[in-house]
Amino acid sequence: MTKKVLILTGDAVEALEVFYPYYRCLEEGLECTIASPTKKKLQTVVHDFEPHMETFSEKLAYGIESHASVDDINPADYDGLILPGGRAPEYIRMNPKVQEITKHFLETKKPLAVICHGALILTTIREHVQGRELTAYTACRPEVEAAGATYIEEPLHVDGNIVSANAWPDLPGFMREFFKKLGVK
């Protein structure tokens, strides 16, 4: 039976953090669904580090189709969850269905991969991340710690069913560890 992976995101998702996992899942023969608050063509963004700026820059990138609205998702149908970063997590984290789906993966201990600002979603369900260890984009550290999790100063960290990473440069290790948790060879 083919394993199924869910990617939860929305507009302003970091392009590499949605495209890379999506295509890697397809490459491995997995079924992969991108879900967002509304089924639509999502606008991705590119975050980059430029020498003249003290923070990252943001530029518009490619569009990518969302396959489903989060309201139509039954998390029990999926074997793994990916939470990409960018600015999408800022607004989708307030959606009760996004919280419900994410809780399912934490409660059932199914593989959950979270990268960059995706950790902001986990901060809304703090009862499920208290005492856990994770990494995220460095600017998310205060929110991670306020949610009761321990912020790990490493580009990639695995704690039980959670695979977490700082940002898009960490995608190869991030997906390798996620696939290990899924049992994909």
Score class of each variant (00 low, 15 high):
H47A: 09
V18T: 10
T38G: 03
V46G: 02
E31C: 05
Y22L: 14
V18F: 00
T55R: 13
V18E: 01
L42V: 09
E50F: 00
C25Q: 13
V46S: 09
L30H: 09
C32I: 14
F49L: 01
A15L: 07
A35D: 11
E54I: 00
S57Y: 00
T55P: 04
E54L: 05
Q43K: 12
P21C: 08
T33C: 15
K59S: 11
E27S: 02
C32N: 13
L26A: 03
F19K: 07
I64C: 09
E17K: 06
K40R: 14
L30M: 08
E54T: 02
D48K: 06
E27A: 02
V45G: 08
L16T: 08
M53K: 10
L16I: 04
A61I: 03
I34H: 01
A15G: 10
Y20A: 15
C32H: 12
G63W: 01
R24P: 04
S57A: 14
A15Q: 15
P51G: 10
E31D: 15
E17S: 05
A61K: 05
T55D: 10
E27V: 00
G29I: 06
A35K: 11
P21Y: 04
L30Y: 10
A61S: 15
T33V: 15
L26Q: 12
K40G: 02
